[in-house]
Every structure is written in structure tokens, then in C-alpha cells.
Design a protein around this nucleic acid. Structure first.
Lengths: 120, 120
DNA sequence: CAGTTGCATTCCTCTTGAGGAATATGTACG
DNA sequence: CGTACATATTCCTCAAGAGGAATGCAACTG
């Protein structure tokens, strides 16, 4: 059995925290499947950089590869993308609250513990 | 009106690409509003590190501050969070296709036989 | 077979940025 | 005012990692 197990959202967000890797993801979103050479041409990066970035993206389940002769065809992997999307989704009430509760005051949470602000 | 526009998703993803900053965001999600000292205690980081990370998070609209006496109360800012969420949302088709495949497995339609799970 | 293409990997350099200590700023309070 | 507390900022060091050049390696082609 291979490891289909849980995708580490932390690792995914670390990987996405790099501009050129985000660019590769966007290119793959448009092309749906690309060889390394195609990504080199489309991105303007050098071939080794593209390969190294793709390696990182593969490790965190953001892209997947399949070998096709001497080519390697890369495509997006939904597991990593969804993990990151879900991570931000856990904050969803934050930006929903700012639409319908513009002027709500502190009176709405009397149970929130008073922080220790008075130590002398 | 609200200044909802002009949040740079690229800058947001750069900022989130750091583990301790993600931890601060999660702490703020649970506490809804925190002083720096509270975040220092909860995170285990040193005070200067917390202040510096909060500065980065503020710059990209992931958190907001309000001054309260000698305290500074930080809370999540929905603009940055939503921008990042939307960035990943633009890839939604990728894992949508993945769900469609999974739906066949859990389908109650007696005509659809669950296929063997194949990957890669 | 030699040569070529597509890609991965290694080695090296150099920048970026995270972390620590010390200090600055700013506010409350006696 | 002087002091204590809360936070921001500065200076420094150091390691992680991104980029470039060169090389390794496997698969095709003539």
C-alpha cells in the first residue's frame, strides 16, 4: 500500500509561500498538464529551478507526476490545494462577521475571560 | 465605506508562509482579540518576535490593531484571510473533479458499481 | 553504437529573513 | 517626576533556501 494519507496543510502553506512556485501552480491551472520544458518556457525560469520547485510541490501533494517516455508530465494535485483552501476556510466566520456585524460592540461577549492586564 | 479592495494576495501568501505567523493567526482565531503579551504567553515566542510577526501580518491585512491605553489589541482581519482563501478557490475545479470520482464510490445508485481505487 | 533530448541532481554562492539581546517609545500610576 | 509595565524598534548573527553552472542519468533517434 502506498501512502495516500493525510496531507500536511502546514507543509503545503510553506511550499506556497514562494512566488515562483505559485507561478508554476497557476501555469498548471491553465495548462492542466505540462512537461518541465513547457513550464520552463512559460515561466522564464531555468530548467533546474523548475525541477527543484516541482520537487517541492510534489512532496506536499500540490502537483503529481506521471512518466511518459522521456517526458515527465506534471499536473495539479487537488489534495494539497484543498488542504490549503480548508485551512483558510477555518477562518471563514471572521470575514463573514464583518459584513453583518459592522457596528457590534463588546457587549456581545460578556463571557470572554478578562486578560491579566492589571499586575502591579 | 469599507476599504475592501487592494489586498495583495501574493503578499498575504508570502506572510502566511511562515509557521510562527500561522500560529499567531490561529491563536487570534481562538481568542478573537489579544494583546501582545497574551500572544507571547500563548505562543512561547519572545516579545520582539511576536511584535515583528504582527507587524508583517498587519502590513498584508491579515490582522488589525487598535490602541487601548498602553495595550495594543490585535485581531484577525478578514480581508487578507479572504484574499488567500479566494486564491486557492480559483483552483477549485481541480479537487472538484476529485470529488466527482469519489462520489462514484459512495453512490447509492445500484447501477453504478464502485470501481477499484486507482491512483497515479 | 554515438549523439541528442528531457529532466534530475549536485555543488556553490549569496541573499533573505528569523531569532536573540538590548534599547527606545509610550502610557499609566504612585 | 520617577518608576513600572506594554510594546516597538534596532542591531547583530546565523541558518535556510533560492538561483546559477555544471554534471548525471534515462530514454529516444539515427
Amino acid at each position: 500500500m502506498y501512502d495516500v494519507g493525510m496531507v500536511d496543510a502546514e507543509a503545503v502553506l510553506d511550499a506556497v509561500g514562494e512566488p515562483n512556485r505559485r507561478r508554476l501552480l497557476q501555469l498548471l491551472r491553465d495548462q492542466h498538464e505540462s512537461t518541465v520544458s513547457q513550464l520552463v518556457d512559460a515561466s522564464g525560469l531555468n530548467q533546474p529551478q523548475v525541477s527543484k520547485h516541482l520537487k517541492v510541490l510534489t512532496r506536499v501533494s500540490l502537483v503529481s507526476v506521471r512518466s511518459d517516455g522521456r517526458f515527465r508530465r506534471y499536473r495539479l494535485d487537488g489534495r494539497g490545494l484543498q488542504a490549503a483552501h480548508d485551512w483558510f476556510g477555518s477562518f471563514e466566520d471572521v470575514w463573514q462577521a464583518r459584513f453583518d456585524a459592522l457596528d457590534q460592540l463588546v457587549s456581545d461577549d460578556p463571557l470572554t475571560d478578562p486578560p491579566e492586564e492589571n499586575q502591579q
